[in-house]
Design a protein around this nucleic acid. Structure first.
Lengths: 221, 221
DNA sequence: CCGTCCTTCAATAGAGTAATTGAATGACGG
DNA sequence: CCGTCATTCAATTACTCTATTGAAGGACGG
C-alpha cells in the first residue's frame, strides 16, 4: 500500500485539505483567523477552548496548508495561509446551504426570525455610503475591528447596541456587518436595532469577504 | 451537548460536507460521477472496489448532499447533486496545489515528465477548432465519451492511441483532454503522441469543467 | 409468486481522530 | 543564566471512521 499511482497520491493530498476542513471547531478557527492573525492563546480565549486543544487543531490546519505560523518573540501568530482557503470554505458552505435540509431548518428557525430581509450587497452599500444615506456599524469586538474594517464603519460591539442606539437617537438607517455571512452577531444586532425603532439591514457578508473582493480596508492607527 | 447554538449547528453541517470530501476514494468517486450518472456496480467496477464499499461511501456522500440517487428498475443511478460540488472540489484542490509541498513533488515527478507545456485554454481551443488547426481527441473510455463530449472531439481511448496515430499519419497537431485537470490519461496521451511525432498539447481541464463553464456538449445518439 | 440480481444493511475488527492532562521546549526579561 | 510564560509534545482514553463479510430488501422476468 505504500507505493501508489500519482492519481491516488494527489487525491490523498486533496483529501488532507478537505479532512482538515471537516471539523466544526476548525471551521470556527478559520472564521476567526480570517479576521486577522492570532496567537494560540488569543484564539483559544475567543473560542473558549483549552490552549492545548487549539494548538493541536492548528497543527492539523498547518499540515493541510490552511494556516501559516510566524513566531514573534514568545508568541506564535497564526493566520490564513492563502486567500484560496476562504474560497474553499465558501464553496463547502455553498454545498451545505444548497443541499442540506438541516441547514435550511437552522436558518429558518434562528436566522430568519431575526432578519428575513434580503441583505445589502457590497455594491449597494458603497452607493448608500457615498450618498450618506446610511450609518454602517461593525458589530465585532473592538480588537477585530482594529485589525481592519470597512472604511467609514463605526465599531458598535453587540453588547453596546442599546447604549449606542439611545445616544444616536431613533429612526436611523443602519447597515450592520460582522465576521461573515452567517455570523450571529449581525443578525442579533439587526433584530435589536429594529426593536429600538431603527431601520436596520445586514451587509451580505462580513469583513473577510469584503477584503477578498479587493475592496479598501481601514486599519486602526 | 445536544443543544447547540445556531452557529455551532451550522458549522457542524458545513463540517459534514467537508468531511465527506475528506477521503481519497470519495474524491475519485466524485470525479467519475462528474462524467455522468453511474450505478453502484458500474462505479465499483471503474474504481476496482467491492460493491458494498462503494455503496457505503455513496451513502456518506448522499448524507452530505454531494450526490443524489435515482432508482431505475433494479439499478440505482447516482450523480452529482449540484454544480456547486465541482466548485467545492476545485476549491479544495486549489488550496492543495498552492500550499502542499507534496503536491508539487508529485506534479514535478510524474506529470511534468509527461507534459510540462502550458495547457491550451478553452478559449484557445475554440479558436483553434474554428480555424480547423487542430484535431481534438477525448482519451476517456468510450462509455464516458458517449455521455457527453466536446463538440468535434473524436474518441481515442488511451489504449488505442498508437493504432490511431498510425492510421492518422504523423505530424498532426493534436489537443487531448479527459476527466479533469490532473487526469492521468491526457498526460499519458500527450507523452505518447509526442514520441510518435505529433505536436500534442493538453486542454487545461476536462469534460466536467467544460460543461460547468456552460459550453456546448455533444451527446452520442 | 418465485428465483435472480442490484443494492443496502448489520456486525465486526482495526485504524485513525478528538479531547484531556501533565511534562517538555524555546524565547524573553531580569 | 535562571525563572517565567507561550506553545508544543506525549500519553491516555473515548470515540468515530474504514473495510470486510454475510445476510436482507426490492424490483424485474419468467
Amino acid at each position: 500500500m505504500s507505493i501508489r499511482n500519482p492519481k491516488q497520491a494527489l487525491y490523498e493530498q486533496f483529501a488532507i485539505v478537505a479532512k482538515a476542513l471537516g471539523h466544526p471547531l476548525r471551521l470556527e478557527m478559520i472564521e476567526h483567523l480570517a479576521q486577522g492573525a492570532r496567537s494560540v492563546e488569543a484564539l483559544a480565549a475567543k473560542l473558549g477552548q483549552p490552549v492545548a486543544n487549539i494548538s493541536q487543531h492548528l497543527q492539523a490546519l498547518r499540515r493541510a496548508g490552511i494556516v501559516s505560523a510566524e513566531r514573534d518573540g514568545k508568541f506564535v501568530h497564526y493566520s490564513l495561509a492563502d486567500a484560496s482557503v476562504l474560497s474553499a470554505f465558501a464553496a463547502v458552505r455553498g454545498v451545505a446551504e444548497r443541499r442540506l435540509a438541516e441547514v435550511d431548518r437552522i436558518v429558518r428557525g434562528y436566522f430568519d426570525a431575526r432578519d428575513d430581509m434580503r441583505p445589502v450587497t457590497r455594491d449597494e452599500l458603497q452607493a448608500l455610503m457615498r450618498d450618506g444615506l446610511v450609518t454602517l456599524i461593525d458589530v465585532r469586538p473592538t480588537d477585530e475591528f482594529a485589525l481592519g474594517h470597512v472604511p467609514g464603519a463605526i465599531n458598535v460591539p453587540l453588547s453596546e447596541i442599546k447604549a449606542w442606539s439611545s445616544r444616536a437617537g431613533a429612526g436611523m438607517e443602519v447597515v450592520a456587518y460582522c465576521r461573515g455571512p452567517w455570523c450571529v452577531m449581525s443578525f442579533e444586532a439587526v433584530a435589536a436595532l429594529r426593536s429600538l425603532g431603527h431601520s436596520a439591514r445586514r451587509l451580505e457578508d462580513g469583513m473577510p469577504e469584503w477584503r477578498a473582493a479587493g475592496l479598501p480596508v481601514e486599519v486602526a492607527a
